[in-house]
Design a protein around this nucleic acid. Structure first.
Lengths: 116, 116
DNA sequence: TGCATATTCAACGATTTCGTTAAATATTGC
DNA sequence: GCAATATTTAACGAAATCGTTGAATATGCA
């Protein structure tokens, strides 16, 4: 499944939504728990989550009365690649490079990425 | 100079603006020439360029009565790094890696980039 | 000086975005 | 069934976004 650069970049342009994505990096979370640290109504957070879901950046699965939010970083792939087409982002790409190698090594076996 | 993720992602969320950035990948351009392929008023394009400039994604320099627009891909650096923090976007990072090496080599002498 | 070219500014309207509050809808568990 | 919990929906308002048109403003050139 692929999502438009429009919706992905637009979703990422809001600081609340970026903060939510960072939180989900740690673990899946229920809507209420996502909302907790923000000084904003639950309804507002619910809408932010809907926007993230539309962009494909998260998925939501309802178990019982709780809706769990799960990060889907693959949705950033196209956007990330698009940006990479513009160049090299000089000094810090050394970090990116290290990270690159790191992941390459950790993947050693070359397990196939979960299909999307 | 660093620009906010808010403004960068927001600037990138519009297809017209992304198209403009792609055009500028080829060469610097005057405002009128940027506008030419679009089915939109010159004033509208002028505003899009202002948004790109505010985000740091382009710079504009007036020479005579012509304002030249220049791509500033470095402004994407922070945003790109932020995204990389979410993962590795597997297959295509090989391309990114090749590009990385390529630039490393082409920089061999280490010419200082024009200061900004 | 005066006209053409290059670009922006100002005012406007339609639409979207971001937040609010209050009410609706599930779902759980006694 | 009833109360508590989890989440969304609806209606609203303020502000931002995206485009338009028409008038300014600079600059180049004969």
């Amino acid at each position: 499944m692929t999502f438009s650069l429009d919706t992905v970049f637009s979703a990422l342009s809001d600081p609340t939504r970026r903060a939510i994505l960072s939180m989900l990096l740690e673990d899946d979370m229920a809507v209420t728990d996502v909302a907790e640290p923000f000084d904003m109504s639950l309804a507002a957070i619910s809408k932010h989550l809907a926007i993230l879901a539309t962009a494909g950046l998260i998925t939501q699965e309802k178990r019982g009365r709780v809706k769990w939010c799960k990060l889907e970083p693959d949705a950033m792939r196209d956007a990330s690649i698009w940006m990479q087409g513009f160049g090299q982002f000089e000094p810090v790409n050394l970090d990116a490079f290290e990270k690159f190698l790191e992941t390459e090594l950790s993947h050693e076996g070359g397990e196939p990425p979960a299909g999307d």
